[in-house]
Protein backbone atom coordinates (compact mmCIF):
# COMPACT_ATOMS: atom_id res chain seq x y z
CA UNK A 1 0.00 0.00 0.00
CA UNK A 2 1.29 3.40 -0.99
CA UNK A 3 2.30 5.64 1.89
CA UNK A 4 1.27 9.30 1.89
CA UNK A 5 2.26 12.24 4.01
CA UNK A 6 0.16 15.31 4.63
CA UNK A 7 1.28 18.49 6.37
CA UNK A 8 -1.03 21.34 7.29
CA UNK A 9 -1.24 24.32 9.54
CA UNK A 10 -4.30 25.97 11.02
CA UNK A 11 -5.33 28.48 13.61
CA UNK A 12 -6.65 27.02 16.84
CA UNK A 13 -10.21 28.06 17.59
CA UNK A 14 -10.21 27.16 21.27
CA UNK A 15 -10.88 29.13 24.45
CA UNK A 16 -7.48 29.99 25.83
CA UNK A 17 -8.16 28.72 29.33
CA UNK A 18 -8.98 25.15 28.33
CA UNK A 19 -7.00 24.93 25.10
CA UNK A 20 -4.05 22.96 26.48
CA UNK A 21 -6.22 20.39 28.21
CA UNK A 22 -8.47 20.00 25.22
CA UNK A 23 -5.58 19.47 22.82
CA UNK A 24 -3.99 16.90 25.13
CA UNK A 25 -7.30 15.07 25.32
CA UNK A 26 -7.71 15.24 21.55
CA UNK A 27 -4.23 13.80 20.97
CA UNK A 28 -4.80 10.99 23.46
CA UNK A 29 -8.00 9.97 21.72
CA UNK A 30 -6.40 10.25 18.29
CA UNK A 31 -3.54 7.97 19.28
CA UNK A 32 -5.77 4.98 19.97
CA UNK A 33 -7.72 5.42 16.75
CA UNK A 34 -4.59 6.03 14.68
CA UNK A 35 -2.98 2.74 15.69
CA UNK A 36 -5.95 0.91 14.19
CA UNK A 37 -5.85 2.72 10.85
CA UNK A 38 -2.08 2.90 10.42
CA UNK A 39 -1.60 6.62 10.95
CA UNK A 40 1.57 8.07 12.45
CA UNK A 41 2.55 11.69 12.90
CA UNK A 42 3.20 14.60 15.18
CA UNK A 43 1.23 17.66 16.27
CA UNK A 44 2.54 20.98 17.42
CA UNK A 45 0.15 23.32 19.19
CA UNK A 46 1.74 26.58 20.03
CA UNK A 47 0.99 30.25 19.80
CA UNK A 48 -2.62 29.63 18.82
CA UNK A 49 -1.81 27.49 15.86
CA UNK A 50 -1.59 23.86 14.92
CA UNK A 51 1.15 22.37 12.79
CA UNK A 52 0.62 18.72 12.05
CA UNK A 53 2.14 15.97 9.96
CA UNK A 54 0.09 12.89 9.18
CA UNK A 55 1.40 9.82 7.39
CA UNK A 56 -0.26 6.57 6.44
CA UNK A 57 -2.35 4.93 3.72
CA UNK A 58 -4.00 7.50 1.43
CA UNK A 59 -7.51 6.53 2.44
CA UNK A 60 -6.77 6.92 6.14
CA UNK A 61 -4.90 10.19 5.62
CA UNK A 62 -7.79 11.59 3.57
CA UNK A 63 -10.37 10.54 6.11
CA UNK A 64 -8.42 12.06 8.99
CA UNK A 65 -7.81 15.32 7.14
CA UNK A 66 -11.49 15.56 6.23
CA UNK A 67 -12.32 15.12 9.93
CA UNK A 68 -9.93 17.94 10.77
CA UNK A 69 -11.46 20.13 8.06
CA UNK A 70 -14.93 19.45 9.47
CA UNK A 71 -13.84 20.47 12.94
CA UNK A 72 -14.65 23.98 14.10
CA UNK A 73 -11.78 23.87 16.60
CA UNK A 74 -9.58 24.58 13.59
CA UNK A 75 -9.81 27.68 11.45
CA UNK A 76 -8.11 28.69 8.22
CA UNK A 77 -6.76 25.26 7.48
CA UNK A 78 -3.84 25.55 5.09
CA UNK A 79 -2.63 22.42 3.34
CA UNK A 80 1.15 22.57 3.04
CA UNK A 81 1.86 19.24 1.47
CA UNK A 82 0.23 16.06 0.26
CA UNK A 83 2.62 13.67 -1.38
CA UNK A 84 3.56 10.00 -1.60
CA UNK A 85 6.26 9.19 0.93
CA UNK A 86 8.96 6.55 0.71
CA UNK A 87 9.21 5.97 4.43
CA UNK A 88 7.58 7.08 7.64
CA UNK A 89 9.26 10.01 9.35
CA UNK A 90 7.21 9.46 12.51
CA UNK A 91 7.10 5.66 12.41
CA UNK A 92 7.14 5.20 16.17
CA UNK A 93 4.47 7.74 17.03
CA UNK A 94 0.75 7.15 16.57
CA UNK A 95 0.44 10.90 17.15
CA UNK A 96 2.90 12.71 19.33
CA UNK A 97 2.24 16.14 20.70
CA UNK A 98 5.57 17.89 20.58
CA UNK A 99 7.21 21.16 21.37
CA UNK A 100 7.13 23.34 24.45
CA UNK A 101 6.15 26.90 23.80
CA UNK A 102 9.48 28.44 24.67
CA UNK A 103 11.39 25.88 22.59
CA UNK A 104 9.63 26.50 19.33
CA UNK A 105 7.81 29.83 19.41
CA UNK A 106 10.68 31.58 17.65
CA UNK A 107 11.26 28.82 15.18
CA UNK A 108 7.79 28.55 13.65
CA UNK A 109 8.12 28.51 9.88
CA UNK A 110 6.75 31.53 8.11
CA UNK A 111 4.54 31.03 5.10
CA UNK A 112 7.01 31.22 2.27
CA UNK A 113 5.31 29.12 -0.36
CA UNK A 114 3.79 25.87 0.74
CA UNK A 115 6.60 23.50 -0.23
CA UNK A 116 9.26 25.37 1.72
CA UNK A 117 6.96 25.80 4.69
CA UNK A 118 6.17 22.12 4.64
CA UNK A 119 9.84 21.17 4.72
CA UNK A 120 10.49 23.59 7.55
CA UNK A 121 7.48 22.27 9.46
CA UNK A 122 8.57 18.66 9.08
CA UNK A 123 12.06 19.51 10.25
CA UNK A 124 10.73 21.36 13.28
CA UNK A 125 8.37 18.52 14.23
CA UNK A 126 11.13 15.92 13.85
CA UNK A 127 13.53 17.93 15.96
CA UNK A 128 11.03 18.09 18.78
CA UNK A 129 10.33 14.36 18.94
CA UNK A 130 11.35 12.78 22.29
CA UNK A 131 15.02 12.07 21.92
CA UNK A 132 15.12 8.81 23.84
CA UNK A 133 12.43 7.15 21.77
CA UNK A 134 13.69 8.16 18.40
CA UNK A 135 14.28 4.98 16.41
CA UNK A 136 17.57 4.15 14.74
Amino acid sequence: MMLYRLVYRSRANLPEASAEAEVADLVARARAANVRIGITGALLHVDGQFLQAIEGPLEAVEALFEKICSDLRHRDVQLLELAPAEERLFGAWAMEQVGRHEDVVDRLPLSVGTAATSDATLALLRAQLPRLQRPG
Partner: peptide
Protein backbone atom coordinates in the same frame (compact mmCIF):
# COMPACT_ATOMS: atom_id res chain seq x y z
CA UNK B 1 -15.32 25.62 6.50
CA UNK B 2 -16.21 25.22 2.82
CA UNK B 3 -13.03 27.04 1.79
CA UNK B 4 -10.68 24.59 3.52
CA UNK B 5 -8.81 22.30 1.16
CA UNK B 6 -10.31 18.97 0.09
CA UNK B 7 -8.25 15.86 -0.48
CA UNK B 8 -10.16 13.37 -2.62
CA UNK B 9 -8.49 10.31 -4.16
CA UNK B 10 -5.15 11.99 -3.83
Amino acid sequence: IARRPYVIDG
